[in-house]
Design a protein around this nucleic acid. Structure first.
Lengths: 200, 200
DNA sequence: ACCTGAACACCGTTCAAGT
DNA sequence: ACCTGAACACCGTTCAAGT
């Protein structure tokens, strides 16, 4: 580490971001330090300030990228067939989405928590807002499809979306922080069966 | 501030804890510093180390106290009458509990997050485990009562408890971090109506 | 335009020494 | 038994200066 680069790094911003992306999960949010980031990118401790206003600016940029990754993952989740399959499950799309969402949170717990923490401001940045709305849109569509297929047709759509989001977010949190009495859906997808007891 | 005390403070441990309890919400978890805590208690920066092994030890003690407060609040929440009132609502107890839980989280957001974050270990301490189990017991009883009154009688009790917990925890998180599209149950108890769309 | 070095105001923590 | 002061190894951030 601390490999020597020429005076002008050339792509320092990107190098710092990708290094930070790694460090985040290995060191935790508190363990992430601008100085160490600079050193392991082979640059002086103050160089990062040419590319980020401050540490928060770096974190917000990372959060935005996180929302982009989440949106892409949710968009790639297999959605329910538009005309409900004969005997098909109305919750198919929602189930797939829940699985993808929680998988993301468990794969990158520190990033997920960073994204969700308000970081002191409204919704961090334009990029965060845009990408988080993209992800939110997946939830909205999944609920619409499920309702069209007969799931809780009488309930308000947005109320269902928000309740579902709260539920998934809650499961993500409990799983990430290891709060579940062990042996209760802690491994893999078992939590989904438990979650569906309320959602179904 | 920095009032002068005699050489031996007398109740430094308690003074530090109560000061920390305050600072936590005003300064945030990251803003809490042992040195500042010591200074504002009128004692040298190293004095706290006679009473707490390190910063984490202080935080774990606070978390345990937080769980005690939560347990007391939940126990004080009005529970449903044991023999379900004629035409009474099976969800009465659960609703009251949800309200109390989220109210706690919104009153002391930083403390709540601290309690829930695993802080690097299993469940922080014996005191944390005991008090969190006390709080968890309230959930269990509320679900039992609701099931006895007819709510989702066919479902597994523990699955319902965990799903309900995830849901409440999720709502607490979304509300604390201000992630809800404004005008959607952000004020007061409105979120409860939304949550009941899924729970009911 | 981009990077460095010294400097400032903070941290948590250890340890020998004081009361 | 409890507290202090100096010291160490860290932080984020600023600013004048270098390339």
């Amino acid at each position: 580490m601390a490999v020597k680069h020429p005076y002008h790094h050339g792509a320092l911003r990107e190098a710092l971001l990708s290094q930070a992306f790694q460090d985040l999960e290995t060191e935790g949010l508190e363990g992430l330090s601008l100085r160490r980031l600079a050193e392991s990118t082979g640059v002086s401790k103050t160089a990062p300030y040419r590319h980020f206003a401050d540490k928060r600016d770096l974190l917000v940029t990372i959060a935005a990228e996180g929302f982009r990754l989440l949106a892409e993952k949710l968009e790639a989740a297999p959605s329910a067939p538009q005309p409900p399959a004969p005997g098909g499950d109305a919750l198919q799309g929602i189930t797939a989405l829940c699985r993808a969402y929680v998988e993301f949170a468990r794969e990158r717990p520190v990033l997920y928590k960073l994204m969700i923490s308000r970081l002191g401001y409204e919704l961090h940045s334009e990029a965060c807002r845009l990408n988080s709305e993209r992800a939110f849109g997946c939830l909205v569509r999944a609920v619409q499809t499920a309702q069209a297929a007969g799931w809780r047709r009488d309930k308000d759509g947005m109320a269902l979306v928000l309740s579902l989001w709260a539920s998934i977010h809650g499961w993500a949190g409990l799983l990430i922080d290891g709060l579940l009495p062990s042996g209760n859906g802690v491994e893999g997808d078992e939590w989904l069966k438990l979650a569906l007891v309320l959602i179904d």
